[in-house]
Write a protein that binds this DNA or RNA. Structure first.
Length: 618
RNA sequence: GCACCCAUAGCUCAGCUGGAUAGAGCGUUGCCCUCCGAAGGCAAAGGUCGCACGUUCGAAUCGUGCUGGGUGCGCCA
């Protein structure tokens, strides 16, 4: 739905409904199309705790009207503390005017009556440690198998419309490594939010309105002259890259020699539009190579001339947030050519910024900030409940003013979260990888994808929090060892598939329907139940990651899950009873059901990261 | 000078928006393949969570002030 003027370029109005998560693997190996029931054991148990607390209130054991929102049911750090722990007694002790242990003991007695609870023990300052009956864990395996890779999906987004703007690379050349991380984080975050119940729009803002696209036009024009047999003059400040040579040839094909003797004023606009379109084609291909898909491409240039910028600024003016004034020079570091200048300013300080920001240059034209304001206003008016921008860390100084603008223009209704992506340092076999921008030998996105593949690139880019610098070693990311998380997780999945293959060869039915109907009560070993407990954390992890806009958590979770699986696998060396394949087919099916459930979660997680699971290591 | 980000084991990094004895990989040391893939696993050693106050039942996490590193700071986006 493109609200208002069809602003998007080239406006693929998102009218058709999209599936909840579109990057599910194409192969049938991961299963899928299950229900998305509430299958979060932690929220389920929290509901139970709350219900018992309310019963205590009704019985007069707790005062009425207590705020229960701080009551949490979480996995304890130490497995010795049980399966789940609640802080209810400690949180409520003060407002209830009672001793934490007294509340905890009362609550423990009540919870013990629930068929799901094996034990409830008061511990420490007032924690209540819960152990669940094995049947609860066994039931979860069955539920995962019948649900498939939508296990863990959630409704916490409540269908809220969120716009994720990312990449937004200048359309002046191919994407380079600096863009890759932002692209991957934005894409994975979009997948994550969709999985957690948000209505996500992925958007690219094309910076085609500034001076840099004029430079692009002049650079392309030289290549056009070159295509016509003339010597190109790639002056200082123009883009020297070879990628413009085909653009020059295409210009020759379109215009022949007709532009050669014309002044810039004649050809600039046409050549600029032509070259920009070509660059965007190239960027789309780059994104596709990385497996990144956008819903909407928005053009900065399209904002000019439509009155959108003026309208946005006028809206701010109506709030008394625009005025003519003179900025103070930055203290302690006055630029050499500083002179007081009256400019049109946005009173961003009224919305949390440190100084007011200019929206017009001294010659009366807009600064880059003005169309950005209009663009974000456009997003607000398109009805998004929430905006997310993914910027490079060097744009950190831009965050406050952008938030101020959105705050003002949405009347505080629409939160804007800006994720700053720290830089990626390239290495080759442990040695820093030198790039020279001047010589045009910068590493492109294509270079990276061709060298190590999109899956590896994507996973590695998500192995750090967005605001931490990331080392990317072309050799190490391909290493097949456990210090390479990509391999480690893939290997876990490969082992699971290996078990399924072996079982099939032995004539054991291992399709999901059969496995989910297996006698899962045979899964009773603590090591097996521990792996199930890890699988139980998946829905919770999704919610935490989605709420914080932190897709990297998925990658770390998958690593932990893989570690648990490898651990259980190897215990089979010493304890044959823990091997997945047993003599008794019924026992095999129960154990394979667990392995398969782990595989389903790995697949679901990898799908969010946009990484293809492999069935076999090569 | 100001703003934002970072500081956790020798190294590289997680740490659930305030929970219990702070975790993982690498590296070091010692173990485990007639066995579903050892491309793996187990165990040990390794910590003043940069420093100092504060908030409270409780702080790596929140607040304030420092120290050290990164990014940015009016007519580039």
């Amino acid at each position: 739905m493109c609200a208002g003027s069809c602003f998007a370029f080239p406006c693929p109005c998102r009218s058709q409904a999209r599936p909840n998560l579109t990057r599910l693997p194409a192969s049938g190996m991961c299963g899928g199309n299950g229900r998305t029931d509430e299958m979060n054991l932690f929220t389920e148990l929290r509901s139970l705790v709350i219900a018992e607390l309310e019963a205590m209130t009704a019985a007069g054991a707790l005062p009425a009207g207590l705020d229960m929102s701080a009551v949490a049911v979480e996995p304890p750090r130490d497995p010795a503390h049980g399966d789940m722990a609640t802080n209810a007694a400690m949180v409520l002790a003060k407002p209830a005017g009672k001793q934490p242990r007294a509340i905890a003991e009362d609550l423990a007695a009540r919870l013990s009556g629930d068929p799901r609870i094996a034990s409830a023990e008061v511990a420490g300052p007032g924690f209540l440690n819960l152990r669940l009956q094995p049947v609860v864990w066994q039931g979860l395996v069955k539920a995962i198998l019948t649900t498939g890779t939508s296990y863990g999906s959630s409704a916490i987004g409540m269908g809220h419309k969120v716009n994720v703007e990312f990449v937004s690379a200048n359309p002046t050349g191919p994407m380079h490594v600096g863009h890759v991380r932002g692209a991957v984080v934005g894409d994975a975050l979009s997948n994550l939010l969709a999985f957690a119940g948000w209505d996500v729009t992925r958007e690219y803002y094309i910076n085609d309105g500034g001076a840099q696209v004029d430079v692009l036009a002049r650079s392309a024009f030289e290549r056009y002259r070159e295509a016509n047999g003339l010597e190109p003059e790639i002056r200082e400040g123009l883009y020297p890259g070879d990628y413009l040579i085909p653009v020059g040839e295409a210009l020759k094909e379109k215009y022949g020699t007709s532009l050669l003797d014309q002044p810039e004023s004649v050809w600039l606009t046409d050549v600029r539009d032509f070259a920009t379109a070509r660059m965007m084609e190239m960027i789309r291909e780059d994104l596709a190579a990385l497996g990144v898909r956008m819903d909407v491409y928005s053009s900065e240039k399209a904002l000019y001339g439509t009155g959108e910028i003026e309208a946005a600024i006028d809206t701010l003016r109506g709030m008394d947030l625009i005025y003519e004034g003179v900025l103070e020079p930055p203290k302690g570091k006055t630029p050499e050519d500083w002179e007081p200048r009256e400019q049109t300013l946005f009173r961003s300080t009224a919305h949390g910024d440190d100084v007011d920001r200019p929206v017009k240059k001294s010659d009366g034209s807009w600064t880059y900030f003005a169309p950005d304001i209009a663009y974000h206003y456009n997003k607000v008016r398109r009805g998004f409940d929430q905006l997310i921008d993914i910027f490079g860390a060097d744009h950190g100084g831009y965050v406050k003013r952008m938030k101020a603008a959105v705050s003002a223009l949405s009347g505080g209704r629409v939160p804007l979260d800006i994720k700053l992506i720290q830089l990626v340092k390239l290495y080759k076999n442990g040695e820093p990888f030198k790039m020279s921008k001047r010589a045009g030998t910068f590493v492109t996105l294509r270079d990276v994808v061709e060298e190590v593949g999109a899956d590896v690139t994507r996973f590695v880019m998500l192995t750090r929090k967005n605001d931490m610098a990331l080392d990317f070693d072309f050799d190490k990311v391909l290493e097949q060892s456990k210090d390479n998380p990509v391999f480690y997780v893939q290997y876990a999945n490969a082992r699971i598939n290996s078990v399924l293959r072996k079982a099939r060869e032995a004539g054991v039915a291992v399709d999901d329907a059969t496995l989910s109907a297996a006698n899962l009560a045979l899964l009773a070993h603590p090591a097996e139940l521990a792996l199930i407990a890890k699988l139980a954390e998946w829905p919770r992890l999704v919610e935490i990651a989605a709420r914080g806009n932190e897709p990297h958590r998925v990658a770390f979770y998958l690593y932990e899950l893989a570690s648990d699986l490898h651990g259980l696998w190897n215990r089979g060396n010493d304890e044959p009873g823990l091997r997945f394949i047993q003599d008794d087919p019924a026992v095999s099916q129960a154990k394979i059901a667990l392995a398969r459930a782990a595989g389903v979660v790995i697949c679901a997680g990898l799908a969010i990261l946009g990484v293809t699971p492999v069935e076999e290591m090569r």
